[in-house]
Nucleic acid binder design. Structure first.
Length: 584
RNA sequence: GGUCCCGUGGUGCAGUUUGGAGUGCACGCCGGCCUGUCAAGCCGGAGGUCGCGGGUUCAAAUCCCGUCGGGACCGCCA
C-alpha cells in the first residue's frame, strides 16, 4: 500500500521520505520553507516541508528566504554530524548538505503559524479565510488523506460485493417533506424551481424498479438546516440500495464496507459488529445511539422500590447509574450542580448516594430507605466502596433521557480515545409519539417497512409497531440509517392511513414514486452512511469541519470566497426573481 | 426563533470584576550580529479604529443599550 514516491521532473524525493539509506544521493526537493535558522553569511538551516514531512537542508552561506516561500532545493543527503541528530523528526538522522536553493515563489508571511499549535489556537474564521494555508498543516493533510482512504476502501468493498455506482441528479424535484431544501430557480420555466437533493432516497428506489439490484453512490446531500459541529449544509453519504434482500443482507453489505474502511485507516479490522434492539439501547443506555466504549449502564431499580415509603421513588420507573470510585471527588457543590443539570434535562430531582468504606450509603435520603431496600439497591447496582450512585425516578422516558445524558456527561471519553465500538441498533419503533391531531409521527420516511410480526398492530396499536429500520452507531455517534422499504401498494396504503396521510396527499407528495411502483417494484432496502462523521471519528476529530477541505461557518458563510453574495440585477431578471426588502 | 461563551498590534493571551495616559507577556514581522542550529541565540526597531454604533461620565478596552462576526448548544435535521 506504499503510494508512489512522488518523483517528478522537478524533484527526486519527498521531504519526509529521506532516511540514512539515502546518504550519498544527490537529491532535489520541492516544498515550503517551514522554518529557517540563519547563522550569518556562512551557514543557514532550512526546514523544508511538503505533505510528507520536514527535512533539514543546510546552506553554506546566507539564505535570503522567508517563511512559506516555495523553493526547490538540490543537495546531497548526508548523515548529520555526531550529536546533532534530531530524534523528534522522522528524517532527523540525516540532512541535505551543500544545498542550492531556487525560489519558485515568494510568499507573504502567513496570517497564522502553519503548524498544529498555531492553527489550533487561531480563530477558526481566520483559518477558513486562509484555508489554502491551513491545509498545509500536518493535521489537515492527514485528515483529508484519511478521507480519501475511506472513500477508496468503500468503493472497493461495494464493487467487490457487486454494487454498481450510479450518479443521480443534483437538480431534483421539491418534496414538501423532511429537511428544508436548497432551491434552484429554473430559468427556462419562470416561477418553477428545482431543489438540491437532501439525499438520493427516491432516486435510488427508482433504480430498484429499474432493475439495478445493487446500487451505490458516494453521494453529496444538501440540507438547508442550521449548522453544527457535526452538521454542514452539504455532506457526503455512502448511499446504497439492493433488491430481493432482507434486513440481514443489508446489514452484511454495510458491515463489510465500514469494516474495510476502518481497517484501511487503522490497520486493524474490528470484530463482528454487535447488535442492540432499540428497546434495549434505551433501557440500558438511555439513548438510541449508545457509546459502548465505557460502562456505567442504566440499572433497572423499579422493582427494588416497588413498595417504598420514600415519596420521590413512588414513580413508574426508577433507574440508577454507578460511577465507579469517584465518591471522594464529589463535594456538596458539585453534587448540587449535577442535580441542577438533571433538572435542566427534565428530571424532578436527582438522588445521589456515596458508597462508604463499609458498603453503607452516605446520602441525604438514605434515612428514607429501608434496610432491605438499601441492601437490594447495593446488590443490584453491584456497588463498591467509593462509588457514586445517581438515581432518577419518573416516567420511563424521562428517566432514560436524564440518566442517559448524565452517563455521557460523566463518563464519555474524548473522540480521539478508546476502541472503535460499532453497534447496530435494530427494531426501531415505526412511530415516535403522536402529533397534535392525534396522528402517529413516523420515526422514518413513510416508505419504511413494518416489522413482519407487527403488521396487524398497524390498525390496533400503531405506537407498538416496530419497523424494519436500523441505525449504525459508532462511539455514540449515529453513522447512518436505513430500512427495508415498502414495495406493495396495499401495505403502503395501510401505513399512509396509520400516519393520517390521505391518498390525494400521498399522490401529490410521492406520486412519481408510487406510480413507478405500479410497474413492478422488487422488494428492496438500503442504507446510507454519513461519511463526514465517520471520517471525523477515525481521525479523532470532534468537528467535521476538520475533515472537510472548504467547510462553512455556523452561519453558512465561506470566509474564503465570501459566499453567499448578492447577484446582479441582470442575473435576477434572467431568473424572474425579485428580492424583497428586508423586514424591519 | 432561543440560550451561553468569545472579539485588545500579524497571531495567541493578560488587562474588563472595582472607569483614570494604549499598559504588559509570548510568538511573528523588519534591521544588525552570529559557522551546527532545530521553538536557534543576542541586540535594536516597527506595528493599535481595544469588532462596529450609540449612551452614561470630567474621563470608557472597562459600565449600559444595540449591532456585526466566530464558536457551543436547544429548536430544526421525516
Amino acid at each position: 500500500m506504499t503510494p508512489p514516491d512522488g518523483t517528478t521532473a522537478m524533484r527526486t524525493h519527498r521531504c519526509g521520505d529521506l532516511r540514512p539509506e539515502h546518504v550519498g544521493e544527490q537529491v532535489a526537493l520541492c516544498g515550503w520553507v517551514a522554518r529557517r535558522r540563519e547563522h550569518g553569511e556562512h551557514l543557514a538551516f532550512i526546514d523544508l516541508r511538503d505533505h510528507t514531512g520536514v527535512v533539514q537542508c543546510v546552506v553554506d552561506g546566507a539564505a535570503d528566504l522567508r517563511s512559506e516561500y516555495v523553493v526547490r532545493v538540490t543537495g546531497t543527503v548526508r548523515e548529520r554530524p555526531e550529536g546533532t541528530a534530531n530524534p523528534a523528526l522522522p528524517t532527523g538522522e540525516v540532512e541535505v548538505g551543500d544545498c542550492a536553493v531556487e525560489v519558485l515563489a515568494e510568499a507573504e508571511p502567513p496570517p497564522f503559524p502553519v503548524d498544529k499549535v498555531g492553527a489550533d489556537a487561531a480563530e477558526e474564521s481566520l483559518r477558513l479565510r486562509y484555508r489554502f494555508v491551513d491545509l498545509r498543516q500536518e493535521r489537515l493533510q492527514r485528515n483529508l488523506r484519511i478521507r480519501a482512504t475511506v472513500n477508496a476502501a468503500l468503493r472497493r468493498a461495494m464493487d467487490r460485493q457487486g454494487f454498481v455506482e450510479i450518479e443521480t441528479p443534483m437538480l431534483w424535484t421539491p418534496t414538501p417533506e423532511g429537511a428544508r431544501e436548497f432551491v434552484i430557480p429554473a430559468r427556462l420555466q419562470p416561477g418553477s424551481f428545482y431543489v438540491l437533493p437532501q439525499s438520493p432516497q427516491l432516486a435510488k428506489q427508482l433504480l430498484m424498479v429499474g432493475g439495478f439490484d445493487r446500487y451505490y453512490q458516494i453521494a453529496r446531500c444538501l440540507r438547508d438546516e442550521d449548522l453544527r459541529a457535526d452538521r454542514q449544509f452539504e455532506f457526503m453519504q455512502l448511499d446504497l440500495e439492493a433488491s430481493f434482500v432482507s434486513q440481514e443482507d443489508v446489514l452484511g453489505f454495510v458491515t463489510e464496507a465500514v469494516l474495510d474502511a476502518t481497517e484501511a485507516v487503522t490497520g486493524a479490522r474490528p470484530g463482528e459488529i454487535e447488535r442492540l434492539t432499540w428497546h434495549d439501547a434505551m433501557e440500558r443506555f438511555g439513548v438510541d445511539k449508545p457509546d459502548l466504549r465505557f460502562g456505567m449502564e442504566l440499572v433497572e431499580l423499579t422493582d427494588v422500590f416497588a413498595g417504598t415509603g420514600f415519596r420521590a421513588f413512588q414513580a413508574p420507573c426508577v433507574k440508577g447509574i454507578r460511577v465507579p470510585g469517584v465518591a471522594g471527588e464529589w463535594g456538596r457543590n458539585r453534587l448540587d450542580g449535577l442535580t441542577d443539570r438533571a433538572k435542566q434535562l427534565g428530571a424532578k430531582g436527582l438522588v445521589w448516594m456515596k458508597v462508604g468504606a463499609g458498603g453503607e450509603f452516605d446520602s441525604p435520603v438514605a434515612k428514607f430507605l429501608s434496610g432491605d431496600e438499601q441492601q437490594r439497591l447495593a446488590a443490584t447496582l453491584e456497588a463498591e466502596p467509593g462509588d457514586l450512585v445517581l438515581l432518577v425516578a419518573d416516567e420511563r422516558r424521562v428517566v432514560q433521557e436524564v440518566l442517559g445524558q448524565l452517563r455521557l456527561d460523566l463518563g464519555r471519553p474524548p473522540v480521539s480515545e478508546g476502541p472503535l465500538r460499532f453497534v447496530w441498533i435494530v427494531d426501531f419503533p415505526m412511530f415516535d409519539g403522536v402529533d397534535d391531531d392525534g396522528n402517529p409521527i413516523p420515526a422514518h420516511h413513510p416508505f419504511t417497512m413494518v416489522h413482519p410480526d407487527d403488521l396487524d398492530l398497524l390498525e390496533t396499536d400503531p405506537l407498538a409497531v416496530r419497523s424494519q429500520a436500523y441505525d449504525l452507531v459508532l462511539n455514540g455517534s449515529e453513522l447512518g440509517s436505513g430500512s427495508i422499504r415498502i414495495h406493495r401498494s396495499d401495505v403502503q396504503a395501510r401505513v399512509f392511513r396509520a400516519m393520517g396521510i390521505s391518498e390525494e396527499d400521498a399522490e401529490t407528495r410521492f406520486g412519481f414514486l408510487l406510480g413507478a411502483f405500479r410497474y413492478g417494484a422488487p422488494p428492496h432496502g438500503g442504507f446510507a452512511v454519513g461519511l463526514d462523521r465517520f471520517v471525523a471519528i477515525l481521525a479523532g476529530e470532534d468537528n467535521i469541519r476538520e475533515v472537510i477541505a472548504f467547510p462553512k461557518t455556523q452561519s453558512g458563510a465561506d470566509p474564503l470566497t465570501g459566499a453567499p453574495k448578492p447577484i446582479t440585477e441582470r442575473q435576477l431578471r434572467e431568473l424572474w426573481i425579485q428580492v424583497l426588502p428586508p423586514p424591519d
